[in-house]
Design a binder for these strands. Structure first.
Lengths: 196, 196, 196, 196
DNA sequence: CATGAATGAGCCTTCATTCAT
DNA sequence: AATGAATGAAGGCTCATTCAT
């Protein structure tokens, strides 16, 4: 990639990161291009140099988010820990990012009338990819008799897990709560019960 | 209440029910008054005979939803079943309504810039009221040594429960799945693990 | 006229009187049928039993106003007072009605795109009729050498008079001012200077 | 100010001038943003680039108008003419602008439910400022025994003057009348009688 | 590359008007 | 005669998008 393109790429990611925060907060229709731009001290028009349209910008922000999640989860899955510890760390990673306001699994709950079919499919593909990493770890745990559930229920358990995690951003209360690490520890323990 | 008023009230609820479906799907900003109206074979203008503005319509739809949930949950809590069975039934009720597309706990994830402060407070109050019914049942279970968690963690457990439940509408796949009752049964069992 | 019709006529006048107050305040476009109705404890729809449409209602309110003014002015003109006193009393009558919130000369400053051509013509005809009564009295005063202006300037003087009078409602300040009679006396004296 | 900003400012004033003509004619509620825009061969949306909303546009048009009037009046007041001539010229200036369709003292007769409280106060402040220039000149005339009225009546006289002047646009009939200068001369003479 | 400016479609809302009852 | 209910045409305003400079 040329220097030019690299620079452009960097700027794009900068925009996407900033946009994510806003999108997380107010959703697709509630977030304006104007807002996204002004948060970055740019003008609306400039965004269109980097992205064809709003849809593309938001789509790419989702992709980035999912890919980041996947890559982090993969790293943990590949570690040499026990399945229990792997799952623990994956959950904590997920929650950590969520609280730090970077999640996107909440965002586009029903992306039907926002994204094109291909875009939707890609998003679902990545979501599934992310989820499968969880599945694999759970599977591993089942085989090692650390988790007690039939293999055909792995997906159900995983979905419940993801749901419970994603909801945390709704009720987690920064200042009042115990310290973040303590909080994460407690939540993780209860979540693990789903599979044990 | 006069006959006239009753009729008007009925129509209002009809509108609210219909609006809920759409709002659930596309969120506040993604749902237009036009859509809400045409779904009911009315014109946009007619909605304004029943509701002052969009905000009020959506607000009332949330209130109705929450109140319905509260009333159903209360009935189950007051039954003479064991805490385990109570919780089971409450979960199944919740999921059932969710799948039948009536939930609203998902809807207004961040009602900040949609509702007025008072409206937000009322919504939070009702959400809390609903959640407390869960708390009570869990409490009861703890005291009867049916559930194993310290009392100070009841709220955490309840929140994880609600999150996992609300997420179900994201992945539950009507036609392909096992029959609804079987599905509910399975999900409920895994959810109960959180508190056992 | 049948009793029916008389009753209807009375109600119409009641409506017109009430409408006048509002129209005076907020103008044609600023006053809604809803407001007019609710001020009379009726519903919007009922107004349409008495008046074909908003235009007609407003038009008739203007006519009534002008006719009342004309009739009052005629009475004063026909009295046996001196032209000076006649004019004085006409001015005071006009101001009195104005302050009591009944004037309409201000209202439809440019009735062009509100009224039909015929309606406009009728309104102008009546305005002119009202003004001519002033002209006659001034004329009389000129002939008796009580007023000093050439006859060809009578209309100019009369228009200045009317303008100054109509403006009074803009600045007259009820509570703070001297008593109404004192105030009227003072204003009238200065106005008379125009023709003396 | 940068060139860009100057250009924007110029455009704003262009819009305001054009809007004034329409507002003068049909009042606040009778004038649409659409009309204002199309008169300038722009689209509705473009107006919102220059003004936050209709209220602001109209408000600023009033301010400009008042400030122009004040500045012109001040110049005349500061001249070395006799109070009589000063007043004469101020009246003629006012009438001249009025006939050339630039007055705004008529416009917002009751700005109550159009403008915000602060906006109203500013408008009243400027109206008062304009009026006070008249007061000062009249005062001067009184002290030089050129005008005969007690000082406590200056405001009354001034208000009658302004009212009579503003009304002129209602009845002044361009084509039929004598030439404008002659007309102004005549009107001014009669108006001066109020204070002499 | 970026900006200021403009466009146009679409949304929320108001309101005169109609009409069955 | 009057009302509740509904309609439809605007009107104000927002916002994604475009484009000349």
């Amino acid at each position: 990639m040329s220097l030019r393109k690299k620079k452009k790429q960097k700027k794009k990611e900068e925009i996407l990161q900033s946009a994510l925060t806003l999108l997380e907060d107010k959703g697709y229709h509630g977030t304006t291009m104007e807002e996204i731009a002004s948060h970055l001290l740019m003008t609306k028009g400039a965004l269109y140099y980097y992205f064809k349209d709003k849809q593309e910008l938001v789509y790419e922000s989702q992709i980035i988010l999912l890919n980041e999640g996947i890559s982090k989860a993969k790293k943990l899955r590949n570690s040499s820990e026990s399945p229990i510890n792997k799952l623990k760390k994956m959950i904590q990673q997920h929650l950590h990012d969520l609280i730090r306001n970077q999640s996107g699994f909440k965002l586009m709950v029903k992306p039907d009338d926002i994204f094109s079919t291909e875009q939707q499919e890609e998003i679902f593909r990545l979501r599934e990819k992310y989820a499968q990493i969880y599945d694999e770890v759970i599977h591993e745990g089942v085989e090692q008799k650390l988790f007690s559930l039939p293999k055909e229920d792995v997906k159900i358990a995983r979905n419940l897990l993801l749901g419970a995690m994603n909801w945390v951003s709704q009720w987690y209360d920064f200042p009042k709560s115990k310290s973040i690490p303590n909080f994460l520890e407690a939540v993780t323990d209860y979540l693990l019960r789903i599979v044990r």
